[in-house]
Design a protein around this nucleic acid. Structure first.
Lengths: 251, 251
DNA sequence: CGCTATTTGTGCGTATGTATC
DNA sequence: GGATACATACGCACAAATAGC
């Protein structure tokens, strides 16, 4: 390192910073290919090792993707300040469901009509299985939530695993088919209980309730499970925590 | 690589996998120090480069930390499947608030009594400023939310910036004091509107509503702002998306 | 289709700097 | 100061993936 260490900072950091600025400023727009490692070595007069360390930083920042035979391409022109959800992650949902038991009330096979397809975010006419059930604390007693779940036909095999299982449906699908959700979309809204719902939840008609709809998507962003849960207000609060993810520094 | 490529997998991957299993199985418990790079080179008969690449993977998985002069220490004995919140991050809240205007109804300085301190997650007797307001779409018209905000005394200077600002309070604090939330805790529950609330929201008493409480915390995990918003059900749905963060594979 | 050129990936050797005990 | 461990940096060679002819 005695060779030409001028500034106090590592050379790969200097290079990473320079490239980052070039990307943020638009000199290398999204979609563009950065100079090859070889070219960068020449440009900055550094070894391939150092070049790669610099590019590794850009990769960690989510600015570029790298592929053998293709090159280093700009993926994003801004550094996302990433908030990582640390509470209520999917694994926490798992914890939560462990103390609950799902009692199945009704199962049926359906073909999605227009309204259902819109709800599920799928194609009209697709085959799904529908399940209605009640979640309650393990010991029994007061029901906590009413649940409406839709499972795409290919995974209907889990239906038999559900009754009494203290596990969320997506994890049953994972266990049986090895499918892990790549993305989970969640909508939360307030509503009031209708007569039927109140009855099944041992609550009063008109009571406020939280409706949580979750869409589980595959890597290809196809919806394969939808779960709609209805929680009487006093029995459930949704909470989560966002923590800023310290970005990998280029400097 | 012709030198001794037996399996189809990279050697660093084999080593990373082996070390990962040793950590997960408890052979290297949390807090323990892994063998030095030199020792691992000898143990697996690989070069220092390859060793470092393997350790880099463990680092990326959050399993170990590395420090010069100390060594490689086990930080965690389980791989967290990290879900990154891609929608409704703090920057999205910013977008959302841009189209809204906050009309201040009332401002007062308070000292937290026991109940308030519990709500705010702070010490009893601490000095806060309280603000009540209504959020409405820019053009005016129907109010969207009733808001109750608490700002710690040190940042009360932003109170003057709030009226009519199309910005969330935390961003006003950032602009004036340079404080960025390191963590945001959020609770969502369902409720019904009381008479006063309904009146100020131009809604009907007893209508369902979403109550969102957000605690904004500093790096030191001190609460410096709390915002409680009340949204009539039909005017607002909370939605977010969790995306799995592709973990760096060791295999 | 195979061939070639390009680009990144994997792997080794070596030397020196810096942090820690 | 000395010993140890990781960090930074140079060099080289070959493998694998990709694109284009």
């Amino acid at each position: 390192m005695s060779r030409s260490q001028v500034s106090g900072r590592p050379r790969y950091a200097v290079v990473a910073q320079a490239l980052t600025e070039d990307i943020l400023s638009g000199r290398y727009p999204v979609g563009a290919t950065l100079p090859s490692e070889h070219a960068l070595c020449a440009q900055f007069d550094i070894s391939r090792h150092t070049t790669r360390e610099a590019l590794r930083r850009l990769q960690a920042l989510g600015l570029v993707t790298r592929r053998a035979g293709v090159g280093t391409q700009v993926k994003s022109d801004h550094i996302v300040q990433r908030y990582v959800q640390v509470g209520d992650t999917v694994s926490d949902l798992y914890q939560y469901a462990k103390d609950m038991v799902l009692n199945v009330l009704e199962v049926s096979d359906i073909k999605a009509d227009a309204a259902t397809a819109a709800l599920l975010g799928s194609e009209k006419g697709e085959a799904w299985s529908q399940l209605r059930g009640v979640r309650a604390m393990d010991g029994g007693g007061v029901p906590v939530a009413l649940m409406d779940a839709y499972i795409i036909h290919a995974y209907r095999g889990v239906l038999g695993d559900i009754e009494g299982a203290g596990l969320p449906i997506w994890s049953l699908i994972e266990a049986r088919y090895g499918i892990v959700p790549a993305e989970v979309r969640q909508q939360i809204s307030a509503t009031t209980l209708g007569r039927n719902e109140a009855e099944r939840l041992a609550a009063r008609e008109g009571d406020p309730a939280l409706r949580i709809t979750r869409h589980y998507l595959t890597q290809a962003l196809d919806v394969y499970e939808v779960a709609i849960s209805l929680y009487p207000a006093e029995r459930f609060t949704y909470s989560n925590t966002l923590r800023i993810e310290q970005p990998v520094s280029v400097s």
